[in-house]
Design a protein around this nucleic acid. Sequence first.
DNA 1: ATCACTTGTGGGAGCGCTCCCACGGTACCT
DNA 2: AGGTACCGTGGGAGCGCTCCCACAAGTGAT
Lengths: 347, 347
Amino acid sequence: MVRSRSGGRPTLEEVAARAGVGRGTVSRVINGSPRVSDATRAAVEAAVAELGYVPNTAARALAANRTDAIALVVPEPETRFFAEPYFSDMLKGVGAELSDTEMQLLLIFAGSDRERQRLAQYLAAHRVDGVLLVSVHADDPLPDLLAQLEIPAVISGPRSAQETLTSVDSDNYGGARSAVEHLLARGRRRIAHITGRLDVYGAQRRIDGYREALRDAGHAVDEDLIEPGDFTEEGGRRAMTELLARCPDLDAVFAASDVTAAGARQVLREAGRRTPEDVALVGYDDSAIARHMEPPLTSVRQPIEEMGRRMIDLLLTEIADRRPAVSRGLERRQVVLATELVERTSS
Amino acid sequence: MVRSRSGGRPTLEEVAARAGVGRGTVSRVINGSPRVSDATRAAVEAAVAELGYVPNTAARALAANRTDAIALVVPEPETRFFAEPYFSDMLKGVGAELSDTEMQLLLIFAGSDRERQRLAQYLAAHRVDGVLLVSVHADDPLPDLLAQLEIPAVISGPRSAQETLTSVDSDNYGGARSAVEHLLARGRRRIAHITGRLDVYGAQRRIDGYREALRDAGHAVDEDLIEPGDFTEEGGRRAMTELLARCPDLDAVFAASDVTAAGARQVLREAGRRTPEDVALVGYDDSAIARHMEPPLTSVRQPIEEMGRRMIDLLLTEIADRRPAVSRGLERRQVVLATELVERTSS
DNA sequence: ATCACTTGTGGGAGCGCTCCCACGGTACCT
DNA sequence: AGGTACCGTGGGAGCGCTCCCACAAGTGAT
């Protein structure tokens, strides 16, 4: 690897001169165009290697009007990002799928208003080719901003049944059903449900699954057995206290998240209810906490890593589609991945 | 905010036309140059607002040869990044210091060889103005690569006393001293030390602090009481087992990390030694685990968030310095921040 | 009135690439 | 033989900015 005489980094032009070809040809080789003869390609590749040529991203971005970067936007403060295994799993999947691409991943937190302001600015400057949106609430204005700026985006967890953005989700409805069916099969009849945040579509779908699993098995749904939570541990404690007071005869609890189940478990123990003998418990997420609970928690596993991979997949397709023609096919793409019930001793 | 007639995003030129000034003047206003009259500045700012102008980063990067981005390079797999509070605290400090800057932060993992390859490519392309390096081992080639590419960099934790890169560190020597002095003050006399990874400079400094605190207090250093660990829990168990076998009369343990202390604690309990009655225990990091241990662990707190802030500070200075002149002052900048002993009931 | 600065401003040149048109060469038809 | 088609290739134009030189107008000393 030789240093270019100019002292700086070698340019396309210099590579072309060295290989004895034109600028256009080098560009074609760099970008893997098939319209180059093998001999020429080899010569150019040799010159690239000799000079240690690396394309200037800024120049490319300017000329081609693309950035080769995508953003993973997390509308939460850093703290939650690190605390919840959801994000790290998602990141793993995203990273894996991106690793044999030229695309660069940016991680952007938009927890505070300040940060959201900056994000809006960032998107307006079109500094990324596409956006991955995770954990978005029903009333979040971000998706609309993205649509207005015409930036390709994929959302994890649609905001509603009418979601217009491309989305990847796990089967919340089916996951909830399997949890309830499992409890029914174990002979439980008074199954309570501590829900997630009601403004999250996925939480609604879990409630639907809970209801219909009971109905389809020929049981009436007792609304008293449904208590709203918010995915947190504290919410689980609160809801469980409420439920015990209202329905002391319950014999099972299906919680919308593992941490919620952990909160519920504390209250149950303090009330002298044994798990699973007196009250069976099923959580959601199959996070690390599920394995470490006492007793280990039965939980609905979502294929989060796989979701990350699919999101990238869809996003890259959308970016590619948008490039040459305006292929406004506009078929709504919604991917739903299956969940799996992981049975442990809490049920 | 009006859309530019061309359909795309407005350019500097269009803003200039609208404000009735030249391109250069708009550029000056955008970049906050003082050499613009108030009236002109106001006119330009109005035009910017009306058109909703946002500078094109790629064009700027190309023309000015800078990217306005810096990378936080983590030479570990994602998993460790999420597991250790060290990183999230660091990120918090970094983010805070960067928040009133135009600089963009990129998070880059370089755990696998594959990822390192990509990183090298990335740096060679000069896609960032500077690099923050955390948790680097003594034999890591990354710092040299950075030096060779002449990319400003700041390292957290120097690799050795001869570190050439600008560095920010906490006072490992002083932290260790304070831990040992605390144990001495509590009347302990047979104080063992489970070290960190020996190829980490900070771990060496802690050993130095341990030794000199004993010596300065007039005690001989018994080398049998020093057992190498590796910062992990498993390492703590192993080392503690070793120590108990070799020196059954020890009455205190200073561990180089909280997780190591947790490992040691398990072994001590299994051996029937009470903490703190029989064996006092002090950890390092003051991480969440310290607060949640049974009994709560006395630990040396490092101001990690502050370290993150200082690192950014130094890096931005270095980037700014490099821009116009080649101010090879080359005074080695090494910042060392004080630690604090957080006393709990384990000692 | 002249000169020497300073201040604010306009606009040319150029950053390194991609896009695309044009051109010579070969191959295959009529 | 001429015509048509398609390769592979060279290089002009232009992406939107910053840098810097040139210049007009103002200021104050001589």
